[in-house]
Nucleic acid binder design. Structure first.
Length: 579
RNA sequence: CGGGAUGUGGCUCAGCCCGGUAGAGCACUGCGUUCGGGACGCAGGGGUCGGAGGUUCAAAUCCUCUCAUCCCGACCA
């Protein structure tokens, strides 16, 4: 491609709307433009990068035995009503009506459609296993779209769905996708981790996220420094540590109520009693479809709402406004405690290991001192309810966990029969019995993968694309358009690079050298070839890698060294997978 | 949805407090000089100041409402 002809509007100044690196750089590099909140156009350069990721995905999906198809983006409400998600999915589902006022939605995901398709065609175990995928535009009316392509409302996703005869077979499909995903993200040049995750609204029993490590990521990952345990912090557990605790002082039969004016936070209470926060317990009221409950955790820990929701088996869960707690329960927020409460108690397992603690007295302005688990309060429901933090013991081996931030680029789920049962997608097994298909689903955010690659590969001058997804592998800079010899040489080299199938952008613009250097750096071309009048006189072509790891002068009359450099660059790129 | 902020040529922003002629830099067009890390000079073109209503002799500026965008929290590829 000739730069002079390319629709590549680079920006010198920082766009005001962008905060995050990848978003800023994608705007500046002329890859994308915003149309509305969370809705972006891909310009030619952005699309080239996107297509490169898609190509890698298709190759690896096909290699894993999956078949590509294309499902409709617009889907009838009936299917969603049949699965029960028309109501359950909520406002995120973009609902639309046709001219006859019939309800449709713009697909946020395709479990319903694929299950409908398959239930009409699959009758026998002989047709299984089956894995079908597509690369398609999804729409989710996100509460808060942000960070450019990182969380758009309209976005491109590769989604795959597997169908198997039983759980064991589904496990093999899942493993196959896990391997394929590792290959895909490795080939994209990303530093990532496959982590255990919560399965969220998609549902199902088991899932892994593929997380690209980056400080700007919205997710946090806990991983063990010794073994291979890794999990999203939403899901991550730590090893339960039993400790010796002193029994309650038999001379004191009950906790002591102490006036603690203006101590509505753990910090204030701990300061008042001159203890550390772990000598207190934190009590919080949650409301779910099952009613109110009080959750009790050690004072120095954060409640993990996902664990609470799971422990309760609730469909939804929220922290009610304090005014609502006062009104409905008559309890003073800020002075809550588990002693003598009438609503169900849900207690973190570590609370039993604390000994004497301080908690709210359920009376405004008062706390209880010398409260013991077992003597002063107890609960049928004891579970792991806290958010893990760095330094917690690994649930597998007990070594220390570390926490890193990351971007979720892929997510794989074992769905089981959740959708096949609802939509009656069944087959006949070898014994002639009718059974529901066992499903899995597997997603990759394609645009997000491009953004994540940029988050992980940039410097002050712009993007440093990994070779595999770089829109152009080579930038050829002609610094002296007026020189016929220089231009003739560049033109012939440009042709030869193209003939060899190398994606090259030839900067033939009538611009000063500085402009060309800046643009080549900004758009992240891995290899830059520069020829100017001076170089031509000396008989040299300058070859420089974007990451600064190489800067060589190549002879003009022998192109063999250039081909060797390009081969090395391509080979370098297929790094060892992160896991 | 709650909290915070911002809307002024294509882009980045000033002007707003204290009402009175709409500005700068970049980008764009033409000419000239320049040419290895985002040049310079001269001459140009381009703006219902997000929208609606109000106050006023007069509104980018003050008031009310509204829309949009961004950032912080609950959802997710």
């Amino acid at each position: 491609m000739r730069f002079s002809r390319m629709y590549l509007p680079t920006l010198k100044e920082e766009p005001a709307e962008a905060e995050v690196i990848s978003h800023r750089l994608m705007l500046r590099a002329g890859m994308v433009r915003r149309l509305a909140a969370g809705i972006y156009s891909y310009l030619p350069l952005g699309l080239l990068a996107l297509r490169n990721v898609e190509d890698i995905i298709r190759q690896e999906m096909n290699r894993a035995g999956a078949q590509e198809l294309l499902l409709p983006a617009v889907q009838p409400a009936e299917l969603w009503q049949e699965s029960g998600r028309w109501d359950f999915y909520g406002k995120e589902l973009l609902r639309i009506k046709d001219r006859n006022q019939r309800d449709f939605c713009f697909g946020p995901t395709h479990e319903e459609v694929i299950t409908d398709l398959v239930r009409h065609e699959v009758r026998s175990y002989r047709q299984l296993p089956l894995n079908l995928y597509q690369v398609q535009t999804k729409f989710r009316d996100e509460i808060r779209p942000r960070f450019g392509l990182m969380r758009g409302r309209e976005f491109i996703m590769k989604d795959a769905y597997s169908f198997d005869v039983d759980d064991a077979a589904a496990g093999l499909s899942y493993q196959g996708m896990r391997d394929a995903y590792s290959r895909i993200f490795s080939r994209c040049g990303l530093n990532f981790r496959a982590v255990e995750a919560d399965s969220g609204a998609i549902g199902g029993s088991f899932s892994h996220e593929f997380v690209v490590l980056a400080d700007s990521g919205e997710d946090a990952v806990a991983s063990c420094q010794a073994c291979d345990y890794a999990a999203n912090v939403e899901k991550a557990e730590s090893q339960f540590v039993a400790v010796e605790i002193a029994p309650p002082d038999s001379a004191v039969a009950a906790p002591l109520e102490v006036a603690t004016p203006d101590c509505e936070s753990i910090e204030a209470v701990a300061a008042f009693f001159e203890v550390t926060p772990d000598a207190t317990i934190k009590s919080m009221i949650f409301e779910s479809n099952l009613g109110f409950c009080m959750v009790v955790v050690p004072g120095d820990r954060e409640v993990n709402e996902i664990k609470v929701k799971a422990a309760l088996g609730a469909e939804w869960l929220e922290i009610p406004a304090s005014s609502r707690v006062v009104e409905k329960l008559g309890l003073p927020v800020g002075y809550l405690g588990p002693v003598n409460v009438t609503i169900p108690l849900l207690v973190d397992r570590q609370v039993s290991q604390l000994g004497a603690v301080i908690c709210g007295a359920n009376r405004a302005g008062f706390h209880l001192q010398g409260v013991y688990w077992g003597r002063d309060f107890s609960s049928q429901q004891i579970a792991d309810l806290v958010l893990v933090r760095a330094g917690d013991p690994c649930p597998g081996c007990g070594a220390l966990l570390q926490i890193d931030r990351g971007i979720e680029v892929g997510h794989i789920f074992k769905l089981g029969t959740k959708y096949s049962e609802k939509l009656k997608a069944t087959f006949l097994d070898q014994e002639g019995r009718e059974r529901p298909l066992v499903m899995g689903c597997y997603g990759i955010g394609v645009g997000r993968t491009v953004a994540a690659a940029i988050e992980q590969n940039y410097d002050d001058n712009g993007i440093c694309f990994p070779y595999a997804i770089a829109p152009f592998k080579v930038a050829l800079l002609n610094l002296d358009l007026k020189s016929e010899e220089v231009t003739a040489y560049c033109e012939s080299l440009y042709q030869e690079l193209q003939n060899r199938g190398i994606s090259v952008i030839y900067d033939d613009r009538n611009e000063r050298p500085g402009v060309k250097f800046k643009d080549a750096d900004l758009i992240g071309v891995p290899l830059r070839l520069t020829l100017g009048r001076k170089g031509f006189k000396k008989g040299i072509l300058e070859a420089r890698r974007r990451d600064g790891s190489m800067n060589e002068e190549l002879p003009l009359d022998d192109r063999a060294p250039l081909w060797r450099i390009l081969e090395a660059l391509a080979a370098d790129d297929s790094r060892i997978p992160s896991q």
